[in-house]
Nucleic acid binder design. Structure first.
Length: 415
RNA sequence: GCCGCGAUGGGGUAGCUUGGUCAUCCUGUGGGACUGUGGAUCCCUAGACUCGCGUUCAAAUCGCGAUCGCGGCCCCA
């Protein structure tokens, strides 16, 4: 027997039903917000990701040389590809350019709960100019998608990288010195952040202040004591989000996402029920296009961990509706078989989902099968009925059965 | 890369401590009872000890390693 590669999954018909259900839900919410879908290759030049995230990530990717001796990797995320796409081909599109995507990504990591080597991301990016509206639109889309899925237990925590950056700058720490400090603060590793700040020459007072700031969370009012450019910007974003009517959104100045390319708003979403791998969404505004050789443009985006989101939804006890077939056509015997195929084709051509006996089984078995697949109705094609141009339509939940002329069958089933 | 736990038909399991009949049961699959009516019942059939090495007269059972899974660490673009 050949096993599937580590960290990958096969999906059963039931699982795929649920996955496609939520996937199309997310797509339609994005479309309803004026976003359009894009798709990029599943493999890219390794350089794309090392340019974005540094050489270290090669260790965590499926990277290899192809037959033409090119350095190739399976994409570990989608933002880099979408921005590459923009820089290559989409720079003349009217802005704001609002795009979304859905697809699998690959990371060579140790699998654990909610972490797979092949996983799926749903994400969106806006390329345009730096306005609070654009950030609010982005956070709003993430919020709308999560809200629509029916997930209950989550908080969208929104911060602004400029708040802590500004405080560090005021204390005389900026640029390359600030970055590692921000990374530690993002992870709430204060014991490790403190010596770094001391070494950078910060006073005990400003260290204490900055640590306190990373712990500021709650409704918009917590920002009252935080003025400054970043604070004002955040307030504007929240004002717009309030107009959009989203709940489950709060301020968290400790969200920093210690990555060099984030420039302003940053946000994260956790689903607490998930355990160690509980982050289901992350995003913010960033500046990447110039790294890939394009003009510097303001962008904002997010990615939702599709698999984790589904896990969280399941843990809350929600299930996706099952995909059932409208009708199952049963020939009573071999003499009516050909006629049954014709009836099935008639229904299918008219948009009625329909299955039929292709195992040449007897009626009893066919009813059992129709029941097992959850067919709503069975269409019994028998000699007696055919004499008057009819078939028997049986409602599988009530057991009621009715003679229906074939010429009005489609209408009868649709009505 | 690190730590811990685990792996028996498609799914769920008994057996493992204390090695010794044809590996248990439920469910699901296919067929039949049932050549014109499902969800029930009965019968038949097929289907598993993750893999390798070792210990032993004898291994599902004990040991080592690998693989995969689960939980966590690191990381999380």
């Amino acid at each position: 027997m050949i096993q599937r590669p580590r960290g990958t999954r096969d999906f059963t018909p039931e699982e795929m039903g649920a996955r496609r259900y939520y996937e199309s839900m997310m797509r339609s919410v994005a479309v309803s917000h004026g976003f359009r879908e894009v798709q990029t290759p599943i493999f890219e030049h390794t350089e794309l990701f090392t340019t974005k995230s540094g050489p270290g990530i090669v260790e965590e990717m499926y990277a290899f040389k192809d037959k033409g001796d090119r350095e190739i990797c399976l994409r570990p995320e989608l933002t880099a590809s979408v921005i590459r796409f923009f820089v290559n081909d989409l720079t003349n599109y009217p802005r704001p350019l609002k795009m979304f995507y859905f697809g699998q990504c690959f990371r060579y990591e140790r699998p654990q709960a909610g972490r797979y080597r092949e996983f799926f991301q749903f994400g969106a990016e806006i390329i345009g100019s730096a306005t609070p509206e654009m950030d609010a639109e982005m956070i709003g889309l993430a919020a709308a998608i999560l809200e629509r899925t029916g997930l209950k237990d989550y908080k969208i925590r929104v911060g602004h990288i400029g708040v802590l950056k500004g405080m560090l700058a005021q204390a005389g720490v900026s640029g390359d010195t600030a970055l590692p400090i921000l990374q530690k603060l993002d992870k709430k590793m204060y014991e490790e952040a403190e010596p770094l700040m001391k070494a950078a020459g910060m006073s005990a007072d400003s260290i204490e202040k900055i640590i306190a700031t990373t712990k500021v969370t709650g409704p918009l009012s917590v920002l009252d004591t935080y003025g400054g450019e970043a604070g004002e910007y955040l307030k504007e974003v929240f004002a717009i989000l309030a107009q959009f009517g989203f709940r489950n959104v709060e301020v968290d100045l400790g969200v920093v996402r210690g990555l060099a390319y984030y420039t302003g708003i940053v946000f994260e979403v956790d689903a607490p029920k998930l355990g160690a791998e509980k982050q289901i969404c992350g995003g913010g505004s960033y500046s990447l296009s110039e790294l890939f050789g394009g003009e510097k443009v303001f962008s904002t985006g997010f990615a939702i961990g599709f698999d984790r989101t589904l896990l969280a939804i399941e843990k809350e006890g929600q299930t996706a509706p099952k995909l059932l077939v409208d009708a199952y056509v049963i020939p009573v015997n071999d003499k009516t078989r050909m006629k049954a195929y014709e009836v099935a084709a008639l229904l299918r051509r008219n948009g009625i989902s329909c299955d039929l006996d292709i195992m040449r089984r007897n009626m009893g078995k066919n009813f059992k099968y129709a029941d097992a697949i959850g067919a709503r109705r069975t269409i019994i094609v028998g000699e007696k009925e055919l004499e008057s141009g009819c078939v028997n339509v049986r409602d599988m939940s009530s057991g009621e059965q009715k003679m229906v002329p074939i010429e009005s069958l489609v209408q009868h089933l649709k009505g």
